[in-house]
Amino acid sequence: MAYDVPKDLAEKAAIMREFGRRRAAGEPVSDELYAKHVNATNDRYATGPESGQHIPDFALPDQYGVLRSLTNLVGPNGLLLVFHRSAHW
């Protein structure tokens, strides 16, 4: 299934809005709309630091408000650090 990648932010936003509207309304999402949405979302996909590189330092509050960094998150063999879009929607 190949669909063109939308050209600009406005076109991407229109596709994302339509996808979101249909989902919210419980309307069916066609394979074509789904693929367009995926293409719009994944354009210029960036994946950050490569294997063998150091991750940037960070310190962020967890769900209890405790500030966490790599040092107090990591296990003896490592940390699986998962970036995801939202826990809310």
């Binding site: 296990g75 490592g78 650090l81 998962v82």
Partner: peptide, 10 residues
């Protein structure tokens, strides 16, 4: 021996 943590903008 691997722990897990997740990051989002929430």
């Amino acid at each position: 021996g691997v722990r897990i943590a997740a990051v989002s903008y929430d």
